[in-house]
Design a binder for these strands. Sequence first.
DNA 1: CCGTGTTTGTGAAATTGCGAACAAGCAATA
DNA 2: TATTGCTTGTTCGCAATTTCACAAACACGG
Lengths: 220, 220
Amino acid sequence: MPRSGDVVPDATVERLPLYHQALVELARSGETTVSSVKLAELAGVNAAKVRKDLSFLGSYGTRGVGYDVDFLAVQVSRTLGLTGDSSVVIVGFGNLGQALAKYAGFADRGFPVVAIVDADSNKVGTAVKEADGIVVQHVDELAKIVREKRIAVGVIATPAESAQAAATSLVSAGVQSILSFAPVVLDIPESIPWRTVDLATELQILSFYQARSGSLQHPA
Amino acid sequence: MPRSGDVVPDATVERLPLYHQALVELARSGETTVSSVKLAELAGVNAAKVRKDLSFLGSYGTRGVGYDVDFLAVQVSRTLGLTGDSSVVIVGFGNLGQALAKYAGFADRGFPVVAIVDADSNKVGTAVKEADGIVVQHVDELAKIVREKRIAVGVIATPAESAQAAATSLVSAGVQSILSFAPVVLDIPESIPWRTVDLATELQILSFYQARSGSLQHPA
DNA sequence: CCGTGTTTGTGAAATTGCGAACAAGCAATA
DNA sequence: TATTGCTTGTTCGCAATTTCACAAACACGG
């Protein structure tokens, strides 16, 4: 009987956002309860895994009935630490940084982009989201920006060569977690959680499974 | 003694692109051999894991010396099925699709974007990369485009609501693998490998580890 | 109030992945 | 050719994760 306070396995943490997403959509379509089977289908995983994952958060289901959608959504949010919005700063105003800044998918899910910086002085001053009055600022201002706007998350959208410098700047500016799109291994203090998403890497993994298609499975 | 033809574990497949990247950089800086310790450092993983991973591809190292950089790079490429370029089509010409189209990181690593389609007729005809003469085409043309340009990979950069339709179109058009940026579980035949990258999901996972920072580890 | 049908929560087994440790093997040197 | 030093390939035990299978628990209808 795991209680809240016990650890949640890493593998479970990686799936909680999936469940959260499914629960939000269920709530939107008016469902009030959901079974582990249904939730598993929506999240594309095994039903037993859903039950075990959820059991790490506490005992929030009702046998014979299922889970209360709204209540469970709150519990998952709370476990993930999604209490209120977390402001984001993007480092690097190239193609990717520009797109991420405008991408609504961040703000919609609680991560509003409130600032963008670049090391190139020529880019400083460019308006990004007119409605929100966001303008590209210089990376030297990072510490001040993070402090004043209470920014929690840094996103690295620079070329690979500048990624480590960007990471170092973000850490000393005081962000609490980092998401990088640069295909390099970063040297970041243990105390700051970080992840890398590399698009070409994803395609290369797919390439492997494609080369074996017909004979082998691929992971969901 | 695993021979080529034996299975490569999923966990290893996910790391091969990391090694590949490191090997390419080593080659570029003129190194001819590399030890598992050095490679592990560059890839940010344990040295024993590197050796075990590489042993699944065959016995390509020399005891007392290390691995031949160029030769190993070729073996990793071959295992991943990276023989020559794989052309990519992007579905969805919103912010994200636009950025991905211009993003050099794809072409540099063997995945040139050769076409972009959208369901909105108003966007059709927009020039994307003048130099390459790429213009937005209508999604109805997808099958023809995939056939004529021998496209292997489809990238979904549509809003979540349209993602399943995009996936279905890509499958019937004949692409061999799919990378989606939409935060939904897709229904795609077993024979087509696919992956989803959801940016908000990544931030939510970070949120969890940030909320526990100081007390707990985070995954690399 | 009891029986029935349903669904959770969780042991326990099976699978997968990890990391330490070391024997085996190669190069270089004398 | 024998010795030395270094690094791979692999074995082994452990940890994490997945999956099965089922008892426990609840709602509901009679």
